[in-house]
Design a protein around this nucleic acid. Sequence first.
DNA 1: ATAAACTTTCAGTATTATTTGAAAGTTCAA
DNA 2: TTGAACTTTCAAATAATACTGAAAGTTTAT
Lengths: 169, 169
Amino acid sequence: MKLEEAKSKFIQQWGSLGSKWGINRTMAQIHALFLITEQPLSAEEVMETLQISRGNANMNIRTLIDWGLVYKEYKIGERKEFFTGEKDIWKVAQRVIKIRQRQELDPIVQILTEIQNIDTTPANQEEADHFTNQIKSIKSLADLADTSLTKISSSNQGWFVKTFMKLFK
Amino acid sequence: MKLEEAKSKFIQQWGSLGSKWGINRTMAQIHALFLITEQPLSAEEVMETLQISRGNANMNIRTLIDWGLVYKEYKIGERKEFFTGEKDIWKVAQRVIKIRQRQELDPIVQILTEIQNIDTTPANQEEADHFTNQIKSIKSLADLADTSLTKISSSNQGWFVKTFMKLFK
DNA sequence: ATAAACTTTCAGTATTATTTGAAAGTTCAA
DNA sequence: TTGAACTTTCAAATAATACTGAAAGTTTAT
């Protein structure tokens, strides 16, 4: 396979992966491009490579910066901004985990906590018990996930790989 | 908080969680409804409760059955089909993990394997090396995730909780 | 064989998410 | 202070996705 073809396949596939994960396709593609490109790129170059508009490029690069997956970089003698991607895939995974945990797991944990205590009247006691039990077990699993993800997103890769390899051999 | 209010909050939140995870809102809501409803429900009842059309209800219930999260159930003397939800949240998690692993992780692993070997010409040796290295480390992480998820989706909850609690105390 | 009771399908419609591109905003060198 | 070079914003357009509901299909009791 040719290098350019391989790059393009990777970018496409990463984009489609992203879109199944609630990350928009373009943002995932831009991220893929930065993952495999060593030198800094300008917004212009991203636009050209992925055939997207200025606004789209700008907005998604900005979000990637917010997520800590892309960095601004200035070249001496150049007015333009350049960007590079975080290349350490472990760091990338940790940042994505942390963000999605905040955005998705936290709200559900909060709701589960809120609705754990409900008024029960004699009329619906049995129904209420079933509901409360289900919510409790969902909350337990959510808490376990939360703890695990927090730990993962603050471990170093060495520890993690070693521990998991032992566990999952 | 009243029971009905709590139920509705849970259904809404589960729906919104689903939609951030590439699972459509309605399907996630139907699933939430089944999680917290003890007795079997007919398609009709799902339609009414969630205010959705027959086609929508049917299609999403069908997918939930395919995913192993909802079961058909027949009541004697009733022509209609009834459905119940898988109530064990650990089983639910395992099934969702397995399905998403197949649908999302597998394709990326396959692409990564494919593009690991590319033609290199003197002209782009350095670029090709960087690319290959990045792909290799992404593949390592993907393989680790794959192994871990496979293990998780075939463990029993007891083992998992025990192991993780020790690990992540 | 018929028809009532029920389920499934799918073309058209509605909703939601994403993208564009032109205008407004900013920065900087002279 | 001006204007060229660049970045950001956002309303409108487009594209992707989900939903509806009526019609077609299926099953079952008689």
